[in-house]
Amino acid sequence: MIRALDLFFSLFGLLLGLPVLVVLFLVGLFDTGSPIFSQERVGLNKKPFTLVKFRTMRKGTASVPSHLACGDAITPFGRFLRRTKLDELPQLWNVLKGEMSLVGPRPCLFNQDELIRERQERGVFDVRPGITGLAQVSDIDMSTPRLLAETDEKMIRNLGIADYFRYIFMTVTGKGAGDRVRS
């Protein structure tokens, strides 16, 4: 049922949001010269996939978890994208392709060994990663690997249709700070 909802909402979002995606892409061209950011992440069953989103940091910024990145690397337009969570819109493509879900644990980088270990122990990689979830709306980011993995596990165990819609609604209405970046 959740996969059917993911397919419907990602296709609907991409079609309906196409004008917004085009405008953000064009503004991003002027901001960084390269508006799309792609990065290999850990997916379902620990298989790699390429996550796509709008670029919020200058080109050439180190490929590290957001909480380890320097805040000075974020562009002014990138701050807007992060604050409004519009940088995540291209991930609807990842959802449509079946690499992600709208709701699930945020996908980590392969170099986040502690988080990968904590998630492996809790079966978090048995589900598709998501754009949002319990950890995101609870302001828990990847700087606390054990807490994040425990929260992911709790969400997975209890995730039903009502929670699926609740996490999406909370994200769209501004709950959660997203991935924190050092100032």
Rank of each mutant, 00 (worst) to 15 (best):
F37M: 06
V103Y: 00
F125H: 03
F25C: 08
S101T: 11
M142D: 10
V127I: 15
L5H: 00
R55L: 13
K59P: 15
F12N: 04
S34C: 12
V95D: 00
V64G: 10
V64L: 15
G28D: 00
K46H: 11
V42S: 06
L21P: 00
I131D: 00
P48K: 12
P107C: 05
G13R: 04
L18Y: 07
R106T: 14
L96I: 12
L81V: 12
R119N: 06
T61W: 08
E121F: 07
R117Y: 06
P105I: 04
P76I: 08
I36L: 13
F9W: 11
P35H: 02
D6R: 09
T75D: 06
R146Y: 05
Q91C: 04
V22A: 14
I74V: 15
L86I: 14
D31N: 10
V64H: 12
M100V: 12
D139Q: 10
V22N: 02
D141R: 04
N94Y: 01
L24N: 08
L21E: 05
V124L: 04
G60H: 11
T56M: 04
P76F: 10
E118T: 05
K85N: 10
G133A: 09
L11V: 15
P145I: 07
G130K: 02
E99D: 15
L7M: 14
E99I: 14
V64M: 12
T84M: 04
L68T: 07
I116S: 05
L16H: 06
T61Y: 05
I140K: 03
F80P: 10
R146F: 02
T144L: 11
C70P: 13
L92Y: 00
G60E: 09
R146K: 15
S34G: 03
I116A: 05
R122Y: 04
L102G: 01
A4M: 11
F25E: 03
S101P: 07
M100L: 12
S66P: 07
G130W: 01
D126N: 15
R119F: 01
F110D: 05
G78H: 04
T132R: 08
G130M: 03
A69C: 14
L102R: 01
P48Y: 03
V23C: 14
S143H: 04
C108G: 15
S66C: 11
G43N: 09
L115R: 08
L26W: 06
I74E: 00
T75K: 13
D139H: 10
G17S: 03
L102E: 00
I74F: 02
P145F: 01
I2N: 07
Q112W: 02
L18S: 15
R82Q: 06
Q112H: 13
L134Y: 10
F77L: 14
F77E: 01
L115G: 11
D113C: 11
L21G: 03
S38N: 12
G28M: 06
G43S: 09
